[in-house]
Design a protein around this nucleic acid. Structure first.
Length: 432
RNA sequence: UCCGGCUUAGCUCAGUCGGUAGAGCAGGCGGCUGUUAACCGCCGGGUCGCUGGUUCGAGUCCAGCAGCCGGAGCCA
């Protein structure tokens, strides 16, 4: 008699096995009880027939409460009606530990706030389980992609001494008497890493203290940021589209079951193949003017609405490049053909999921970079180490950052990023 | 920070014209040999967000506050 996981039951048909898990749901029909048991790898129906078990076991099986931990011994069979599904004909049912109080999350609907208060329990339900597994696969694919292309993982610090880009609101903390901030990006460190390793990436949490309360924002989110030496903007765009196509392909290959649970329409994901359409910022403004935003003009940044209008013109992610330099952070290189433009690019996901990648080619000229720091009214001293990247053998380089949660929301087809991370940190939520 | 909406049983919600609080699920008891958010019968369960006001009488009308949701702004 072997101990098995539910995901492996198909390999044990005809055997008597032991299963440990939690009671997910229970139905009853006279001399039959149906116990749905989950063990983290899946859910299986255990059939408790009065004639097959001890009388006291049969009576007790009808009173086990949801999420009690239990052990079932029984025969693995293919489901009588549903082909390809398996069930267990129970011989013994033992409660390992009953619930100490009624489990709060029932089979019917609940509100978001209630579920978020019970996030630690909500993770046990089918839908959340599917999302977390897709997230896992995305993160694994991200690492496999860069590792497979000779990138070196170079972790960036989370405590930083200064406001890197001088733009977003940062979380401030005390660092042995000095002010420190939680990082909003590892990018500047990746530029130093690119000089050391050629191709480098970091992957970790980043923090924004903005009072944003939208379906696309979290206070704590994860970002992957590659940076490559001797890469220009064109190469950066190719890297971004190959990368996204790889990640989407991996999820489609390995998480079909989870996407089905999430009722995700995968036909739109199957179209995500390189190359992606590329338009300039100026062309994006023209699209907006034609499609219901006549007031759009050069110099505007795009809100969620505008991103949706632009991306809905295309059947796959679209790359928008060469924004006005005035809209972008100080480190972007100017377009030699038009110095009012930055050599930057954003990737907008389809279906209104918005910007998932932002990046571009960096300014590699020491004098121009110093001037840009001054123009943005940033202090020079905290950036001395960063300027060293230009002082000691400067080189053209480019990179980008991809937000994991927005990517998970897009691939899972979720309306809000709050479900894309196990324990979200939002404007008004620090617990559980 | 601004605009709008919501707040009633453990959960999701209904509650008419201002007149003694309702359902489904969950829980308890019972029934049913194939159920799939099973079903059927019975039972227990309420500071109607908080504070104040109007009224003979407020879940219901008014004001303030709080929390949450959606959107805007800001941003990835």
């Amino acid at each position: 008699m072997s101990e098995v996981h539910i995901a492996d039951l198909r390999n044990h048909v005809g055997e008597t096995v032991t299963l440990r898990g939690w009671l997910y749901n229970r139905r009853s029909s006279g001399k039959l009880h149906f116990l749905e048991v989950r063990d983290g790898t899946g859910i299986v129906q255990c059939v408790v027939f009065k004639g097959n078990v001890a009388p006291e076991t049969f009576a007790a099986a009808d009173h086990i409460q949801q999420e009690s931990s239990i052990e079932v011994v029984g025969l693995v069979k293919e489901h009588q009606k549903l082909k390809g599904q398996y069930e267990i004909d129970a011989k013994e049912v033992r409660v390992i530990a009953p619930v100490a109080r009624e489990y709060p999350i029932g089979p019917k609907e609940h509100g978001t706030d209630f579920l978020m208060d019970n996030r630690h329990l909500w993770l046990r339900s089918k839908r959340q389980h599917a999302i977390v597994r897709v997230r896992h696969t995305i993160i694994k694919a991200v690492r496999d992609f860069f590792d497979g292309r000779g990138f070196t993982l170079v972790d960036a610090p989370i405590f930083t001494p200064n406001a890197c880009e001088g733009t977003s609101t940062l979380f401030e903390t005390d660092y042995h008497g000095d002010k420190a901030y939680l990082t909003q990006s590892g990018q500047l460190y990746m530029e130093a890493a690119a000089a050391a390793f050629g191709s480098a990436y970091c992957f970790g949490p980043t923090f924004r203290a903005e009072k944003s309360k939208t379906r696309r924002h979290l206070a704590e989110f994860w970002m992957v940021e590659p940076e490559v030496a001797f890469l220009d903007l064109d190469g950066d765009m190719r890297l971004a589209e190959d990368f996204i196509a790889f990640v989407v392909g991996r999820v489609l290959e390995t998480r079909a079951e989870e996407l089905k649970v999430l009722e995700r329409d995968t036909t739109v994901l199957e179209r995500v193949k390189a190359p992606f359409p590329r338009i300039t910022y100026a062309q994006a403004i023209e699209i907006l003017q034609k499609k219901g935003h006549p007031q759009a003009k050069v110099g505007d940044d795009f809100g969620g609405d505008e991103e949706t209008v632009i991306s809905s013109e295309f059947d796959r992610p679209v790359i928008v490049h060469r924004y006005p330099i005035s809209l972008k952070a100080f480190y972007f290189k100017r377009d030699p053909g038009d110095p009012s433009l930055a050599l930057n690019m954003d990737v907008l996901a389809p279906e209104g999921y918005g910007e998932i990648i932002g990046g571009g080619q960096r300014e590699d000229d020491l004098g121009k970079l110093e001037a840009a720091i001054d123009a943005h009214k940033l202090p020079r001293a905290p950036f001395e180490w960063y300027l060293d990247v230009r002082r000691y053998g400067t080189f053209p380089h480019a990179g980008f950052g991809l937000g994991i949660e927005r990517t998970v929301a897009w691939l899972c087809g979720l309306p809000h990023v709050r479900e894309t991370i196990p324990f979200p940190r939002m404007l008004n939520r620090l617990a559980p």
